[in-house]
Amino acid sequence: MSLKGYSIPRTSTGRASLVPHPPWHYVGDLLVVDYWADPDAARSVLPEGLDPHPDAGRCAAVFADWQSCSGEGEELLDPVRAQYREFFLVVNALLDGEEVTTCPFIWVDQDFALVRGWIQGFPKKLGSIWMTRTFGLGGVAADPGLGEGARYGATCSARGRMISRMTLTVEGPSEEGPRHNAPPIVNVRHFPRLARGRHDDPQVHELVKLLSRDRASSTAVEGEATLELYPAEGEEHHILAPVKVGRGYRMTLGYTVDDLETVKEIQQR
């Protein structure tokens, strides 16, 4: 009898796989801050194959509260397998002259989203992420709504240490939405070897462009934002701490992932 399953653990039925077979459908609420980091720090996290963006140091910080499912949608009836939150940073760059972004740091609070991210080239680590929610009930004190003056906050911590904190005060609808995280994401899929003598020769080390389809988005609202990145033992994200903070945004986004473009195999430095 052969073992089945898209990811480990693989069994005779495949039902225990941590990550189900694509397609993966996503919908979620996002809080985004456009900002600028030290240009040298931004350049230092670019993988081989990407060039610095002409607007040096351009970055975005993103908090997301996601719900996802595979093709049959069974996870929606078992929400612990569907819902998760994450926080990540993207740095703007160029790929053969095309504007792209890359994600050097990201934290997530569910194991299936962690491994699914590794498959796509996101360097995910476990963390604790919290975000202010809205439920569409205007005039309820605990619901900030999306009108002028609505206030949102979000935090990320990992291993008991604070990673990031952001706030947004809504001023009104956004004509363009967030810009610093708008270009396509290009990441490195990296899977190392354990064989003695080959530790520096990874099994997989490739530059990939993430692809999505059937995208849908709400109208974004925007306003004044704050963003802090805190140093923490065993972390390096704080090198991308903001030197200038731009606008903040809140929006709802949905899309489907079932494909990936390999840009090129790259040599390990």
Rank of each mutant, 00 (worst) to 15 (best):
G73Q: 06
E86K: 15
L46M: 11
P47F: 05
F122E: 04
S128H: 09
L126P: 00
Y26G: 02
L126M: 15
F135A: 04
R133S: 14
E74Y: 12
G117M: 08
V62L: 15
V108H: 03
G127V: 01
A64E: 06
G28R: 01
T102P: 13
A61Q: 02
G28L: 11
C59G: 06
D38L: 07
S44E: 07
A60Y: 01
W130L: 07
D78W: 04
A56E: 14
L126H: 08
A41F: 08
E86Y: 10
T102E: 06
E72K: 10
V91M: 14
I119V: 12
R133I: 02
K125N: 08
R43H: 09
H53R: 06
R133Q: 15
A37V: 05
L137F: 11
E74V: 12
V45L: 09
G136V: 09
V90R: 13
D38M: 10
E98K: 15
Q110E: 15
W118D: 00
P22T: 09
G57R: 02
W107D: 05
S70E: 02
W36K: 13
Y26I: 10
P23S: 14
A113W: 01
G71H: 07
T101N: 14
E72S: 14
S70L: 08
D55H: 09
L89C: 11
A141G: 00
F63H: 04
A82L: 06
S70I: 06
D65R: 14
S68M: 15
R133F: 05
R81A: 13
G117N: 12
V33T: 11
S70G: 15
S128R: 13
P52Y: 01
G71W: 02
F105P: 03
V100Q: 05
L114I: 12
P52M: 11
W36Q: 10
D34L: 05
D40K: 15
L77K: 10
D109I: 03
M131Q: 13
W107L: 11
W107I: 10
H25W: 07
R133W: 08
L46S: 11
V32W: 00
L114Y: 00
G57Q: 01
H25S: 08
G117V: 09
A82R: 00
D65E: 13
F135Q: 05
R58S: 10
T132K: 09
W24L: 14
G121H: 04
L31A: 04
Q110N: 13
F87M: 09
A56W: 03
P79H: 02
D109G: 05
R85N: 06
L76A: 02
I129L: 15
T102N: 12
T102Q: 11
D51H: 07
L89K: 13
S68L: 08
H25E: 06
R58N: 05
D78G: 01
L89A: 09
L137H: 12
V62R: 05
T101Y: 11
W118P: 02
D65S: 15
E75H: 01
A113K: 00
K124G: 03
V140M: 12
D51N: 04
V115E: 08
F63C: 06
W66E: 03
K124Y: 08
L46W: 07
V33F: 01
G49D: 03
E99T: 12
A64V: 14
A64I: 12
D65N: 15
W130N: 12
E99L: 13
I119S: 10
W107C: 06
L31Y: 11
A60F: 01
A56M: 12
R43P: 00
W130V: 07
V80I: 07
K124D: 04
V90S: 12
H25N: 13
G28F: 07
